[in-house]
Design a protein around this nucleic acid. Structure first.
Lengths: 149, 149
DNA sequence: GCCAAACAGTTTGAGTTCTAACTATTATTT
DNA sequence: AAATAATAGTTAGAACTCAAACTGTTTGGC
C-alpha cells in the first residue's frame, strides 16, 4: 500500500471518528431540547453523567473530571462555572487538600439524570445497528487501544 | 442486559469516541507545532486536506466543505475567514451561481500540504496498533454505519 | 412575469476549547 | 526548616462551535 493510499485510508478513518462525534453531539443535543433542557449542552451532560455513573461516591475534583472526559483543566473551569450557574452541581473545597474542588450533583442535577436516564444513551437504536452489545464493547476496546498506542 | 448495563456500555463507547477525537486533535496539533505551523489549527488542516485530497478539482463551496467535514455552515464562515487571514486559501464567487463561494488552496496552502503530507496521517503508528489497513477500513465502515443508522 | 420557497453565506451571542502564564497549596529535597 | 518541585485551579486571549435570525440569489409554481 503506497503512501497516497495510506493517507486516504487514515483520512477516511479520522473523518469517520470526527463525524461520529459530531453526530452523537447533535443527536443528544436534540434530545435535550425535546426534554426541555435546551440550556444544557452536550458537554455539561458529559460531566453530569460522569458524576452520576462513574465517579466514586458521585464526587470528583475538576482534574479527575477533565482526565476522564478527555478535556483540558481550563475547559473544566468554564464548564463548572456554567453548571453552577444552572444549579446542576455543587462545589466545595476539599478540607484535606485545599487545592482540590470537590464537585458533586445538586438536587437539580440528580433530577436531570433521573429525567434523562436511560433515554439519552438509547440515542442510537441498537436494533438498527448490525452490532451486538458485545460488538460495542469490543469496538470500544479497539478505539481505546488506538488512543493508548 | 438491563438498562443500567446498557447505559454504561454506551457511555463507555461514546466516551471512547470523544476521547479518540480529542487524542487525534492533540497529536495533530503537536505535529503542526513541530513543523512550524503553530498558527494553523487542526480544523483548518481538515479543510485544507479536504480540498487537496477529496474535493473535485481541488475546489468546493462552503456548504460542501461543511457537509463533508461535519461542520455547521456558520462555523465554516469563521474558519474560511481565518484561513484567508493566513493566505492558505483563495475565495471567489461562482459566476454561474452567485450564492456560492468557491474555495481553493492558495500557493501557500499547496506548500503546506506538501510539507505535511503524508506525515500527519502517520500520527498513529500502524505497527503499534494491532490492526491492519483492512481492519481500519472495516472500522471506518462500522463507524459510518452507526452514523447512518 | 411574479411571488414564494429553497439555498448559500453572514452575523450575533453564548458556550466550548486550548495554550501559556499565573496563584495557591502541598510534597519533596537538601 | 527553607528552597524547590509538583499539583489543582484560574485567567486571558484566540479560535471553534452552534442555533437563530438575517441578506442575497436562484428556482419553481402559478
Amino acid at each position: 500500500m503506497d503512501d497516497q493510499q495510506l493517507v486516504k485510508t487514515m483520512h477516511y478513518f479520522f473523518n469517520a471518528v470526527l463525524k461520529l462525534r459530531q453526530d452523537l453531539r447533535q443527536r443528544m443535543q436534540k434530545k435535550l431540547v425535546e426534554r426541555g433542557y435546551s440550556d444544557i449542552t452536550f458537554e455539561m451532560m458529559q460531566v453530569l453523567y460522569f458524576l452520576r455513573f462513574l465517579a466514586q461516591k458521585g464526587e470528583a475534583n475538576q482534574q479527575e473530571i477533565a482526565d476522564e472526559t478527555g478535556k483540558n483543566k481550563a475547559t473544566l473551569t468554564s464548564l463548572i462555572t456554567n453548571l453552577l450557574k444552572r444549579d446542576m452541581i455543587e462545589r466545595k473545597t476539599n478540607p484535606d487538600n485545599r487545592r482540590n474542588n470537590i464537585i458533586g450533583l445538586s438536587a437539580k442535577g440528580h433530577q436531570f439524570i433521573l429525567d434523562l436516564y436511560p433515554d439519552v444513551y438509547k440515542t442510537y437504536d441498537i436494533n438498527k445497528i448490525p452490532l451486538s452489545m458485545d460488538d460495542i464493547l469490543s469496538l470500544t476496546n479497539t478505539l481505546n487501544t488506538i488512543i493508548n498506542s
